[in-house]
Computed example of a mutant assay.
Amino acid sequence: MIEPEFLTTTRAFYDAIAADYADRFRDALDAMPTDRAMLALFADLVRAERPDGKTAELGCGPGLVTRHLYRLGLDVRGIDLSPRMVELAREACPEVPFTVGSLFDLPFRDGELTGAVAWYSIIHTPAERLAEVFAEFARVLAPGGHLLLAFQVGDEPLRLDKPFGHPVSLDFRRLRPERVEEAAREAGLPVTSRTVREPAGEESTRQAYLLARKPPA
């Protein structure tokens, strides 16, 4: 099967910038209280559903959020499209399993996960293919399982050209919370909480956090 061009481009982009990205954002969560609060809430929900439930960060990059979830006590693993990002994640957090994989073909059995996090990882998927990604999220979540999404709010994509001086470029798709909520609901993952905060620090747009849950059996 021929891989879609947007996946090839995304992998090449993150392979190129992986080391610089990991250094730049290594301690980013320290200055983001809302982000930490959302991750803590998610961890509480997963533990309440099943104390030993398996969780995955889908599109984990160098594992910064995955490591935070591990420190919150979750049985977590990370999946990313970029082999270089996965390599760095394994070095930074050897206690956690990390695997190369795609949001379109997650390496989990049906209903295997109690929790899933897509932290700024759906933003490179074309709008017409988001339904496939959400269907895959719904497939791997067990009944009662929780999904946490984070993304930038907006309509126009942001194009990053030659980040950190590397000769690569990529579009970062900003999304409307109501449209993401609709996509989740249509996949059988109704949203239970929606949070939008104003830009902070170097951010130029609002940030959204959606919690969704697969209905209990």
Rank of each mutant, 00 (worst) to 15 (best):
M1F: 15
P4Q: 09
L7Y: 09
F13R: 05
F13V: 02
D15S: 08
I17W: 03
A18L: 01
Y21F: 12
D27Y: 13
M38K: 15
M38Q: 13
A40M: 09
L41T: 04
F42S: 03
D44S: 14
R47W: 00
R47A: 10
A48D: 09
E49I: 08
R50S: 07
P51N: 12
D52W: 13
E57G: 12
R67N: 04
H68F: 13
L72C: 11
G73E: 09
D75Y: 13
D75W: 08
D75A: 06
V76K: 00
I79N: 00
L81R: 05
L81M: 09
V86G: 06
V86L: 11
R90G: 07
C93V: 03
T99M: 13
T99R: 09
S102N: 06
S102M: 05
D105I: 05
D110Q: 01
E112N: 05
Y120M: 06
I123M: 07
T125C: 10
E128H: 15
R129D: 14
E132I: 05
F134A: 03
A138M: 02
R139C: 12
L149N: 00
G154W: 14
G154D: 10
D155V: 08
D155K: 05
E156R: 02
K162W: 13
P163V: 01
P163M: 06
P163W: 12
P163Q: 05
G165M: 10
G165S: 06
G165D: 02
V168F: 11
D171S: 07
F172W: 08
R174Q: 10
L175D: 10
E178I: 06
R179E: 15
R179T: 15
V180W: 04
A183L: 10
A183W: 05
R185I: 09
R185Y: 12
G188C: 08
L189N: 03
R194M: 04
T195Y: 11
V196Q: 04
R197V: 11
P199T: 02
E202S: 15
T205S: 11
T205K: 09
R206C: 10
R206P: 06
L210W: 02
P215S: 01
A217F: 12
